[in-house]
Amino acid sequence: MTKRIILPLQNAAELKAGEEVLLCGELIGARDQAHQRMLALLNSGRELPFSLAGAVIYYVGPAPTPPGKVIGSAGPTTAGRMDVFTPALLDAGLKGMVGKGNRSLEVVEAMRRNVAVYFYASGGCGALYAQCIKRAEPIAFTDLGPEAVFRLVVEDFPVIVAIDSQGRSVFA
């Protein structure tokens, strides 16, 4: 049986690269422009409109929500575009990220420093992941449309530990 991980993430150090796990609890959905704004806030010494302590960010920009559904198609986007913003967020308490594709050396180093993990979600599988999202609400930067920050409550959200807190990686 696949291991369930309850969020916020408490046991990042125990996760090993290559493990398949199911995430349950709260993810923060955010991508390019939201990251740029988060970094601008942190750099100017201001507080973020949500807490990063123990948080796991899901790199996602969902499709519009059809009637009667919780969310539209919502698969992972390319993590590498967030690399320049990520070390500062990790230093501010972020414990995990969910996305697709590899990360930069700087991000891996910041993950080791802060004991954080990067999960791989299957790229393009927007319909599959939408089914695991039980609640979704925009919580910040709503002017950005699909690029706003979302609070996502997920159940059995299937991911692979891609880079663990010791810097071990599953990428070929």
Binding site: G61, P62, A63, G124, C125, G126, A127, P146
Partner: peptide, 17 residues
């Protein structure tokens, strides 16, 4: 599996359409 869900639900298989 994602392709089956998308067809059944009538939603895009990838959010980046």
């Amino acid at each position: 599996e994602n392709l089956l869900i998308a067809a059944r639900e009538g939603i895009p298989f990838c959010q980046d359409t």
